[in-house]
Simulated scan of single mutants.
Amino acid sequence: MKPEELARLATRALIYEVSVNPKPGLVDPVSSGPHPDMSVFTFIDSSLSLQPYLTICAQAGDGWIGTLPELFASLRRAGITAEREMFAATNGVNTHKGAVFSLGILVAAVAFVQKHRDTSVQGVVQGMLAGLCEHDFDGISDLPESELTAGERLYVEHGLTGVRGEAEAGYPSVFDVGLPKLLTASGTLNERLLDTLLAILTHFIDTNLIHRAGTLDVLPKAQAQAQAILDVGGAHTAAGKALLAQMNDDFLAQNLSLGGSADILILTIFMALVEGDI
């Protein structure tokens, strides 16, 4: 698959994710959820603005001859420019900052594996990001709290590594949870993707959710709600739809967001498109 085609699939994954509805705590075509400064159109504009960057990531992985950590370093530099393009397209709204990081990594890894078939996508990601958490979190406990990002604050206070830890481990929430659930879920593609999002939430430590709530207690409660929907048959059943509607109402009332889980869903959709599973 050519780099340009990989970039198109990655862009499709971004648009597919925002199209899935109704998603608790997230923007979709029906609702902006707890994000009044965003709409589905904001996300479409953002997605299209990132396609040139995703092409760069695919081209980098396709032609890379250096070490894998050096490949990641090159993606980080390209990602800085991509973030500026995203903010320009959305009038300063942060729609896809997490996806710039994670989707760029995965696109490059897939492109690399297509040329070096003696390895796996997960293996390449792990090789690219070895030591990431140790590097990125080194010394942050000595910084004033006012200088810490939300993710850094959660690391200092609770030891949560967030998306960095997920990435360094090779995105197990994608390969061990998201993709298997997508393959076995029932109903329309929209309903299957909803069930996939819920399955991801039951296993993934969504630091965006924790940050919004201001407490770790929110995670097991949200995971229990997601599991209850899956236990009654998922989003394609009447019982599942009713519980999902209640979860939507609860998240909106509490101003909660599943931004981290949404990024994992994007990665899952991308891999499913690459593998021809959707």
Rank of each mutant, 00 (worst) to 15 (best):
H203T: 02
L143D: 07
G98D: 10
V124M: 02
G187E: 09
F204H: 12
I140E: 15
G187I: 09
G170L: 04
S102W: 02
V107T: 14
Q126L: 04
G123R: 09
V124E: 02
P180E: 03
T184Y: 01
K97D: 07
P172S: 10
D118K: 13
V113L: 07
L193S: 09
L103T: 04
S141N: 14
I205G: 03
F101A: 07
A185T: 05
L193V: 07
Y171N: 00
K115M: 11
G123A: 12
G159T: 12
Q126K: 15
G127C: 07
L160W: 08
L148H: 08
L103V: 05
R192W: 02
L129Q: 13
G187N: 09
G165A: 08
V121E: 03
V124W: 01
F112Y: 15
G123S: 13
A169G: 00
G159N: 08
S173L: 05
K97I: 09
G123T: 12
G162K: 02
M128C: 10
G165L: 04
A99W: 06
L198C: 10
L189V: 11
A167T: 08
G165K: 07
K115F: 09
D118H: 15
L129W: 14
E145Q: 14
Y155R: 08
A108D: 06
T119S: 13
A99D: 09
G178I: 00
E168R: 03
F204E: 01
V125K: 05
G165C: 06
Y171V: 00
S120W: 04
F175D: 03
Y171K: 01
L179A: 00
C133N: 13
S146T: 14
E157A: 14
H135N: 15
V174S: 04
D206K: 05
A150L: 13
Y171C: 01
A109V: 02
H158S: 04
F137G: 11
D195P: 08
I140R: 13
V113D: 02
D138I: 11
L143E: 13
G104W: 11
L197H: 07
S120N: 08
N208F: 07
V100G: 05
L129G: 10
L143C: 09
G139S: 12
I210Q: 06
K97R: 15
V113I: 11
L182V: 03
L189W: 05
S146W: 05
K181R: 13
R164T: 07
F204S: 01
R153Y: 15
I210E: 06
Q114H: 09
A169C: 00
L189I: 10
F101H: 12
P144R: 12
A109R: 02
R192S: 04
H116E: 06
F175V: 01
L198F: 15
T202K: 02
S186C: 07
G162N: 05
K115L: 06
L179C: 02
V100C: 09
E152T: 07
D176L: 02
T196C: 08
A167P: 12
V107P: 03
T184D: 07
L132G: 04
